Simulated assay, not measured.
Amino acid sequence: MLIIEGAGRWTTPTDGANDWVEHLRMPDLSVGTYCIPAGGLDDQSPHTEDEIYVVTAGQARIVTPDGATEVGPGSVIFVPAGEEHRFDEVTEDLALLVIFGPAYGSRAPAHPAPLRPRS
Rank of each mutant, 00 (worst) to 15 (best):
D42K: 08
G67C: 05
T91E: 09
D15E: 14
E83W: 07
V98A: 06
E70F: 04
T48I: 06
G39N: 13
T11I: 12
I77S: 01
Y34I: 08
A38K: 10
D42R: 09
P73N: 06
T33S: 10
Q44D: 09
D66C: 14
H111F: 07
L115T: 07
S119G: 12
V63K: 05
R86K: 09
M1E: 08
D93N: 15
G74N: 12
R118M: 00
G58C: 05
E5Q: 14
G16W: 05
P46W: 02
A60L: 06
E49F: 01
L41Q: 11
E83V: 11
P109I: 09
I52V: 12
R86M: 03
E5K: 13
V76L: 05
E22I: 08
P46F: 04
N18I: 05
R86H: 08
G8M: 03
F87C: 06
R61Y: 15
D88R: 07
A38I: 00
L94M: 14
I3A: 12
P46M: 02
V98I: 12
E22R: 15
D93Y: 09
L41K: 15
V71L: 02
P102K: 13
E70D: 05
E5M: 10
A108E: 11
H111A: 05
N18S: 14
P13N: 11
D50C: 01
T48Y: 11
L29H: 05
L24H: 04
D15Y: 10
D66H: 15
A113N: 09
V63R: 09
I36S: 03
P109T: 08
E49H: 02
R25T: 05
Y53H: 03
R118V: 00
I52Q: 04
E5L: 08
H85A: 02
L24Q: 02
E49C: 00
I36H: 01
T11S: 09
T56Q: 13
T64D: 08
L94I: 07
A113D: 06
V21G: 04
V76S: 03
E5F: 04
P109H: 04
T33W: 03
A57F: 10
R107Q: 02
V79Y: 00
A60Y: 03
P73F: 00
G8C: 09
P102G: 06
G72I: 03
D66P: 11
I36M: 08
V63I: 13
V98Q: 00
G32H: 01
A38Y: 09
T14K: 13
R116H: 14
F87Y: 15
P114M: 12
E83G: 08
L97K: 01
A81H: 07
V98M: 06
D43T: 06
R61N: 11
V63W: 07
H47Y: 10
G8W: 01
W20R: 04
V63Y: 07
G39Q: 12
P109G: 04
N18M: 13
Y34C: 03
A108N: 10
G40L: 02
G6M: 10
T48M: 08
D50F: 01
H111Y: 11
D93L: 02
E70Y: 12
G72E: 07
H23D: 12
R9E: 13
